[in-house]
Amino acid sequence: MPEFFHRKIERTAIGFVVAIIAAASVGGIVEIAPLFTIDETVENVADMRLYTPLELAGRNVYIQEGCYACHSQMIRTLADEVDRYGPFSLAVESQYDHPMLWGSKRTGPDLARIGGKYSDVWHAAHLNNPRDVVPQSNMPAYSWLARTPLEVDNLGHHLAAQRAVGVPYTDEMIANAARDALGQATPDSDAAFSILDRYGEETQVSAFDGVATSVTQLDALIAYLQVLGQMTDAAYLDTAASELPPDAEDRDVTQAEEERN
């Protein structure tokens, strides 16, 4: 019987193709299918924020420049990473990330919780020429970012596309996207106040690159960097890292995490 079956498969190459698909696809299906119901297991986080239009635009600058090639945004459940970068990353923190930017290589440090660690001024100087503030750095200088105006007119389309893939932006947010982007980078303007109503009091309104009269790609990128790790407090609520003896032989804190659950 198997022999007959296989002869048939071989004679018609199409049957062979079906066999390849049957053999190959099962691994993907079995591993990935349960992940689509995983949100049932992830606790809903009440304080989860959305990216403002300016932060989303900054995220796109981060993508456009390929920052993810050298910087991860995923703190693993290892004690040394928690000590160096902060509480390990939770699934819920990238709930609204299309695409995710976990990265695969650390030529530079992890950025998952870089938000708030350095001032806007430091970021502006560092991006303009990293060796001005970190002499040993091998990061490229992104001096053109401060000179490149940010395109804000199509941000409504960006938000609408984000909503189409599942991010809960409201009609009001989509309609005011361009205004909100300008407002966030222009403190004391009218637009700067209305953004707080839409995106919450936590939203950082600042001149970012130090120039409040124009909105550049540098403004957007700094706005994005400053919210990394700040979208929810979920990771800080109960982190097991400090409870583990630092000299524990297996520096894996997953187990501690599992026990807690």
């Binding site: 022999e3 099962v26 079995v30 591993e31 299918a33 349960p34 119901t37 995983i38």
Partner: peptide, 29 residues
């Protein structure tokens, strides 16, 4: 409408049976 636990259980068991069945067919051939 699948429960997460059901899907996970299915993945953990049937994937293995599939592997064994597949291996037998290939070896016989």
């Amino acid at each position: 409408n699948f429960e997460h636990e059901t899907l996970v259980a299915f993945s953990k068991s049937w994937g293995l049976f599939y592997l064994i069945g597949m291996a037998i067919v290939v070896v016989v051939y």
